[in-house]
Design a binder for these strands. Structure first.
Length: 175
DNA sequence: CTTCTGATTGTTAGC
DNA sequence: GCTAACAATCAGAAG
């Protein structure tokens, strides 16, 4: 079980699979390491944080929905602590949701993406800076101190609204 | 003690 | 263009 992780399904590099995009690939999953000594060791920090503040990927609409779903799911199933249980249930419901409902999460996810780009910009800049001096060599600098600096637009309104942002002319469903 | 895994889908980045 | 990897999560499993 542990062996097949990265490419679980044989990398799906076969011509057959190649034609078919990642269809049912159980997601090669993460690091795909654990081979022998690929386990990232925590140098000193708690987790293997390669980069000081690496911009994590923006949660997809599904993940946004997941966060909310998890709360609900846990409420109705406080005994269920299996992540797989929520994942399955969420996935099922997700597919059951209408595009309208999904659009609400998609809109949010889209916004996340924009922020992600911003974070990348800051991160990217950081990288350049880090590369300049020797990284990890100087410890007296108290590591990174700057945080979130890509706020050029002071207008960061936080709409607490619930759902439906500006769908404007969305064809909705006319069937 | 520390890191990984499971399970879901979507998005992003690399080739 | 397609593939691989990763995004959260939580508790257990493995080393």
């Amino acid at each position: 079980m542990t062996g097949a992780r990265a490419k679980g399904k044989g990398a799906a590099k076969n011509t057959k699979d190649a034609l078919k995009p990642a269809d049912d690939r159980k997601v090669g999953k993460r690091k795909a390491a654990v081979d022998k000594s690929s386990q990232p060791k925590a140098k000193k920090e708690k987790k293997a944080q390669k980069d000081p503040n690496k911009p994590k990927r923006p949660p997809s609409a599904f993940f946004v929905f997941l966060e909310e779903f998890r709360s609900t799911f846990k409420k109705e199933h406080p005994n269920v602590k299996a992540v797989s249980a929520v994942g399955k249930a969420a996935g099922e419901k997700w597919k059951s949701m209408s595009e309208d409902e999904k659009a609400a999460y998609e809109a949010k996810a889209a916004k996340r993406k924009v922020e992600y780009e911003k974070q990348m910009n800051a991160y990217n800049k950081r990288q350049e800076s880090a590369g300049d001096g020797d990284e990890g060599s100087d410890r007296s600098k108290s590591e990174v101190n700057d945080e979130e600096e890509a706020n050029e637009e002071g207008e960061q309104q936080q709409p607490e609204d619930e759902g439906e942002e500006d769908q404007e002319d969305e064809d909705e469903d006319d069937d």
